[in-house]
Design a protein around this nucleic acid. Structure first.
Length: 409
DNA sequence: TCTGGGGTCCTCGGGCCC
DNA sequence: TCTGGGGCCCGAGGACCC
């Protein structure tokens, strides 16, 4: 009779993913201060720009590495409202980092090279490295563009050296296929594996066993637990709890009293390294949305025409996304961010699923009427939820209802 | 010139029905 | 008829993550 396999879960995190993908195209930028960012509207085509600046030379995908460094756009030339998506290690000593406004970053590190975000490219590499993993260990959970969980438990060799042997194989296979490096943590569950993958970056492997929790996990700050964000972190701090060990020392009952039944129980379990969540290989999307921040704050009345155009474009974009992915939805909603950064959402559930741009625009327009629009708007978003696969639904005669003439925009 | 875009999940209150 | 649940759905907001 075979020995009972102990659960071994890996968390794999690509190292500096966006920057590393850019360095595959532009190796001449490696080691330089560089930020990637800007909003959707600021996404200029870098190659187009380079060609414009040097009309006699048309750079092609084959000779991107030849583009002189001084042809790349600099942060100091940026105008707009975007934020940094990621900053290279060479840029960080200047005090720039993720989520910082680009204008502020430009003052701190004007000489940094600014690349537009190229999600299509990152998605391409994302698919590639995940495919490599699935061929080796098929029980893989997608956790975003650059992260996955992998269940090593049933994989041949997955238990050897606590998972280190298999982790090494995956690391090498990903590098051979893509030229990208990653860090892997292997532990008894997802919670611990996620923390372990951070221990040894970049290109590292960390193995954590139950017996290591006290030594390796408890000294860490509470914020290292995936699920404890800025709010909970601050609340814990106000009770004098800074490390996971201090959190673990609190009675379960005390945590439930102070954080509620569900959250308190979870905090207690997490601090003790307990997590029974399975690795989920398939999941259906819950909602699809598009949103945009305006170049300047807009007023519902004074900028009505401009807002109307943007609103329609968002509805069309969401409809396009739904149709491309093969979904229809019946909860249609809007999201507004005002100039004071307050967020308001409204949604409505309609009788029939749809992915029709005009229908989405119409229902979203009705949602808008339920909001006080005296403040100026900074952001507008359109969302469709309660999704179903369009193929699973009876082909309805999608008769667009009589248009509501009362649209606000 | 502070503060993007696309998601998930949870909680809470209200309405409705039994 | 009145009152008090419980279950369920919906809408709004908040926290968190990549």
């Amino acid at each position: 009779m075979p020995a009972v396999a102990r659960r071994r879960i890996a968390h794999l995190d690509m190292d500096a993913f966006y920057a590393s993908v850019e360095w595959l195209r532009y190796p001449q930028l490696k080691g330089l201060p560089m930020v990637i960012g800007g909003g959707r509207r600021q996404e200029d085509d870098l190659i187009g720009r380079l060609n414009v600046e040097r009309p006699e030379r048309h750079w092609t995908a084959d000779d991107l590495a030849d583009i002189p460094v001084d042809f790349f756009p600099l942060l100091r030339d940026y105008v707009g409202r975007g934020v940094i998506t990621t900053a290279s290690y060479a840029a960080r000593p200047f005090g720039v980092g993720s989520a910082m406004g680009l204008m502020k970053a430009a003052r701190r590190c004007p000489q940094a090279i600014l690349l537009p975000v190229d999600f299509d490219q990152y998605r391409k590499y994302s698919r590639a490295f995940k495919q490599v993993i699935r061929e080796i260990a098929p029980v893989m959970e997608d956790r975003g563009i650059d992260e996955v969980y992998i269940d090593f438990t049933g994989v041949p060799g997955g238990q050897r050296e606590g998972g280190r042997v298999l982790a090494r194989l995956i690391q090498k296979s990903i590098f051979d296929a893509t030229g990208l490096s990653c860090s892997i943590g292997v532990a008894p569950n997802k919670l611990l594996a996620k923390m372990a993958s951070e221990f040894n970056k970049p290109n590292g492997i960390s193995i954590v066993h139950e017996t290591d929790i006290e030594r390796l996990i408890w000294p860490l700050p509470c914020r290292k637990i995936n699920g404890i964000g800025p709010k909970t972190g601050a609340r814990l701090l106000s009770h004098g709890i800074t490390t996971i060990g201090e959190l673990a020392a609190r009675e379960r009952h005390w945590l439930i009293t102070n954080f509620g039944n569900s959250h308190g129980t979870w905090l207690h379990d997490a601090a003790h390294g307990r997590d029974a969540r399975p690795v989920v290989t398939e999941s259906e999307p819950v909602s699809v949305s598009r949103e945009t921040t305006f170049d300047r704050d807009l007023h519902a009345v004074r900028d009505r025409a401009e807002l109307g155009v943007i609103f329609t474009e968002l509805a069309e974009a969401v409809a396009g996304d739904l149709q491309r992915k093969g979904y229809v939805g019946k909860t249609i909603g809007i999201k507004l961010r005002f100039d004071d950064f307050k967020i308001v959402t409204r949604d409505t559930t309609v009788g029939e699923h749809t992915s029709d741009a005009r229908r989405i625009r119409q229902v979203a327009g009705q949602c808008l009427k339920r909001v006080d629009l005296s403040r100026r708007l900074r952001l507008l978003g359109v969302r469709v939820g309660s999704l179903a696969r369009s193929a699973d639904l009876q082909p309805s005669s999608e008769a667009p209802e009589t248009a509501d003439t009362g649209w606000l925009f």
